[in-house]
Amino acid sequence: MLWDWGYALEILPVLGQAAIITIEATLLGFAMAAVLGLVFAILRMLGPAVAWPVSMLIELVRSTPLLIQIFFLYFVLPKFGVTLDAFTAGVLALGLHYATYCAEVYRAGLENIPRGQWEASIALNLSLYTTFKDIILPQAIPPVVPPLGNYLVALFKETPLLSAIAVLELMQTAKILGSETFRYVEPITLVGALFLAMSLVSAALIRQVERALGRRFVR
């Protein structure tokens, strides 16, 4: 018997607990990515002296594997006296990695703002801060929500990498279950099925958001 339903049902609650960790890591990581990405995108608009180093950092983070970045944060930061638990280090790595992707998305949104909006803000004598807060960002962010949503799903699918630094998320839990019972079929297949289900549901949600936004922000 290859597939044991009894065993599968028995481990399902354990995997459910682990799924909560996975979702926590996803949400925290994405919150960081969304904020830091916006910071990167705005920094890149502030003239070449700031833009250049930020672009370099983005290129470096985007071009190297997330797994290495996770190891880097987890093993290197303690050498500078910053000791992080595995979960925090993992979330920071996920957030930083996806911030560089989000920065590109925000950039597209910011570049789509008509020039006249900037000129009108200058004519009204608004400060740079007010211009961003009240004029530019409210117009730039809503149209880029769907692509940001795609990165949320992508980030979610990368959370199993945290198992490499022993965060007890879905994949790590499945591996432990597998090594305890020597049955890998059920745990790993269930993890795959859970990911597929959650990805499909969130993809459908993003399509809904896209449609709702599409009605309001037709240009």
Binding site: M171, K175, Y184, V191, G192, F195
Partner: peptide
Amino acid sequence: GTSALVQLFWLFF
């Protein structure tokens, strides 16, 4: 729809 690492472990284990 699934994670690359899950796929890797599925094929491996």
